[in-house]
């Protein structure tokens, strides 16, 4: 079985013990890295009261909900309910788990059980992620000379390779940029590209 793999950020932006918000298609996700480095992506909703788990906190190999401190292990199963310290949580209390991998500094998410099938980004270094408040078509307009291969747009900036991994969120587009050239130069070019794409929306 294979679901689509969606880029959800850069490894450098998710250090040990940190959780962030992400998305797969319409589903909102909490993506986190345990103290030992293990990556997880879950539905962004604590089964107890629906609180976003991306607001939670990581201790060791568990992610806890900020609301009542319910802790979940890397398998998604609830391991502790602080209001009932002596109780072993029932197995039914479990976060919905996605598959989450990283390669060449990019974090990818797909539904559980998907075969790993990622684009080749070897030889490129991660630069930064930006969010453009425009649709994919406006972003494409702002990238003359770039070639689209699935979720990856490839091009050149002053002779250096640039690859933009695109995460389409409908009304906005998140771009995870990699390249071989000067990162400051790529970063500033991205700022300009974003303005260009957003002007396209206004026009």
């Amino acid at each position: 079985m294979s679901g689509m793999w969606v880029a959800n950020g850069l490894s450098q932006d998710l250090p040990l013990g940190v959780v962030m918000a992400g998305a797969w298609q319409g589903a909102e996700l909490a993506i986190w890295r345990s103290a030992s480095g293990r990556l997880s992506a879950w539905n962004d909703r604590c089964p107890h009261r629906g609180m976003r788990l991306s607001h939670g906190f990581v201790r060791g190999e568990t992610l806890s909900c900020i609301y009542h401190g319910w802790a979940y292990g890397t398998d998604g199963a609830c391991s502790k309910i602080p209001a009932h310290p002596a109780m072993v949580p029932p197995a039914a209390i479990k976060a919905e788990v996605y598959q989450c991998v990283e390669a060449e500094g990019v974090i990818w998410v797909a539904p559980a059980g998907s075969d790993v099938d990622l684009p080749d980004l070897s030889g490129l270094a991660a630069v930064r992620s930006v969010t453009v408040q425009a649709g994919l078509a406006e972003v494409a307009h702002a990238l003359p000379g770039f070639v689209c291969e699935g979720a990856v747009w490839r091009g050149q900036l002053d002779g250096a390779a640039v690859a933009l991994v695109v995460q389409d969120r409908g009304a906005l587009v998140r771009i995870h940029a990699l390249g071989t050239g000067d990162r400051v130069k790529v970063s500033r070019w991205l700022d300009g590209m974003m303005r260009l794409a957003e002007q396209g929306v206004l026009a």
Partner: peptide, 8 residues
Amino acid sequence: DDYPSIRL
């Protein structure tokens, strides 16, 4: 959510 460096 759109600002990873601000988050860190």
